[in-house]
Amino acid sequence: MFSIFRRYRELLVVSALIALPLLLFLAGTKEAGERGVVDKAVITVFSPIQKAVTWTVHGAQDIWFGYLYLVGVREENKELRAEILQLRSLALQADEVMLENERLRELVDFKERLGLETVPAGIIAIGAVPAFSRSIRVGKGVGDGISLGDPVITPKGVVGRVVAAGPGWADVMLLSDPNSAVPVVSSRTRTRATVRGTGDMTTAVLDHAARTDDLSEGDLLVTSGTGGIFPRGLPVAEVQEIRRRPHGMFQRGEVSPLVDLTRLEEVLVLVDYREDQEDMPPVVKEGS
């Protein structure tokens, strides 16, 4: 008997390992989920492995999805910040366009009121140090009818005159340039004088006013029309201070240009003015 087992032991063991479980299963001795002592012991031994795997996978998932979430939030944050900047920029542009619109409307009104041929021009360059710059460059030139000596004005008053011009540009010597001298009259007393630049953008000097003439602080000075550069009646400056000396022919004073020369953006260039200046009436009602 034992020798038969030894002879066919492989066959018997393998057959038993197939047949016994099969019979047990077919006999239905155990339902799914029903566990014996050995089953429970095996599960108990291996459950820590399962817990470790589950913990590791969930941990990795938490890290991965947390990272993705944070990346998503960061991206969204960046996009929102960019959007805010864009909207702010648009708002500023809108404000800027509105202000420009106002300025241009004022310029157009002034141009119509002026009744002279003018070329509107934008400032394309100023001196590197604005506080000391004495000239500006506008974006219109000889191709637009601008020529040397043309007066440059804004609705507020005289800016300067063209001292150089090219095809698409023109340099304007400002009122504040020491070489600039504009013949003026007091709109109140018709006293003649000259406003001369000092290099300072906010202050000019009053020169060549007879010592006995009536000039006082607050007087509005307008172009006299003499000198052949500026038409009559353009506002130039306001008297700030008068210094009368006890001797000499002239009194001197300080005036402030009516145009803020440091904040120019658009100007009007009076073209072809000098040719017909003899017939021109005062361009701005004096005292207005």
């Binding site: 063991v13 393998v14 390992l17 197939i18 047949a19 479980p21 099969l22 047990l24 299963f25 239905g28 155990k30 339902e31 799914a32 989920g33 029903e34 566990r35 014996g36 089953d39 095996v42 599960i43 291996f46």
Partner: peptide, 24 residues
């Protein structure tokens, strides 16, 4: 055969199947 039986037992045990179903 014993290793195979253990493998089948494991399949049943950890899959909630009736023990013995995967052994044979």
């Amino acid at each position: 055969a014993v290793v195979a039986a253990i493998i089948g037992y494991g399949w049943d045990l950890f899959s909630g199947l009736p023990v013995g179903m995967s052994v044979a």
